[in-house]
Amino acid sequence: MCHRWPPFAKLFTAIAMILAATCVPITHGPLVGIVACVIFFAHTLARIPLAYVCRRLLFFWPTLFLMAISLPLSQAGQKGWLLFVTIFVRGTLSFSTALWLVNVMPFDQLLATLRHLRVPDVLLAIVSLMYRFLFVLWDELDRMRTARSARMFRKPTLWETWRSAAHLVGRLLIRALDRADRIHGAMLARGWDGRTRWIEQRREDRP
């Protein structure tokens, strides 16, 4: 049911939850528990599958763990472990909140909300263009990878792998810039004069 909330409500709920998760001291156990419960409740309200959240957390935890484990490792006492737990709990809670926002708020809606919050038009225009062509570039990258592995007859040495991967990035760069030129031409053909115009949002997306 969170999906139908007005976009502003979703964004500010998420910000408030992250704020609560990062500011409550870990020593206030019950308070942290309440924040965790609220976040969990939001997930169940939005019907986000638990298995999905767990899978994302499994990929997320190692990076957080690496960052947090350095504290107790450098100090044998209890203080280090307390900080470790603090970082770990805060990180996990705010990550799940962000995950909730990602799932209840489509990206276009987020951009529309930001536009109403007076984020500069240039930024939004660039980011919507980026979002549009991100997936095109991913597909292109995929095709180039396939082509590369089809051309390789033996297992490459480490240096060759590196070189070909860096060439992949360079080649993708050249193709992307050529594509940007074509897009620019197409935009000019449709009367682009450097100003950004937005199509009025659908009713349910309007903040």
């Binding site: 240039v122 225009a125 660039i126 980011v127 919507s128 263009l129 980026m130 549009r132 062509f133 991100l134 095109v136 570039l137 991913w138 292109e140 990258l141 480490l158 792998t161 590196w162 991967a165 860096a166 992949l168 990035v169 993708l172 760069l173 992307a176 810039l177 594509r179 940007a180 897009i183 620019h184 935009m187 450097g194 950004t196």
Partner: peptide
């Protein structure tokens, strides 16, 4: 705008290329 947007998309995609 098109050039910067494409560059941002490129950096994003380029970060997907793994270097062992």
């Amino acid at each position: 705008i098109p050039l910067t947007g494409m560059m941002a998309a490129l950096v994003f995609a380029g970060q997907m290329v793994n270097f062992p």
